[in-house]
């Protein structure tokens, strides 16, 4: 239960407990605005059970994953939309951890 694994949230390494979801990893990384709504409001997870779609992020290069439904695996690369948008504006996709 106490084993921890390392994942990457927007390129930064994060230690999470084994069995954590990707949504939890993002929160542990200190990110609570996972994405921006169409008008630019910050949003984070709401339902925690794969219904509301607010927690979606890019996981291992695949966009729009419901992070609350995905268990972390060692080395998982998670990229939030907000980071991607910021990186896009700077023209630097690598920095966001979204580059493939």
């Amino acid at each position: 239960m106490s084993t921890s694994i390392e994942v990457f949230v927007n390129s930064a390494p994060v230690e999470v407990k084994a069995g954590s979801t990707a949504a939890v990893a993002i929160l542990v990384a200190g990110v609570d605005a996972f994405r921006l709504s169409p008008s630019g409001q910050p949003r984070g997870p709401l339902c925690g059970m794969g219904i509301c779609a607010e927690c979606r992020a890019t996981i291992d290069g695949v966009a729009n994953q419901y992070t609350c439904l995905r268990l972390c695996h060692p080395g998982m690369r998670i990229c939030t939309e907000v980071a991607a948008a910021g990186a896009g504006a700077r023209g630097d996709a690598r920095e966001s951890g979204c580059s493939e």
Binding site: T21, V24, G48, C68
Partner: peptide, 8 residues
């Protein structure tokens, strides 16, 4: 609760 169970 789901997030807490998910390790938060």
């Amino acid at each position: 609760q789901a997030l807490a169970k998910g390790g938060l």
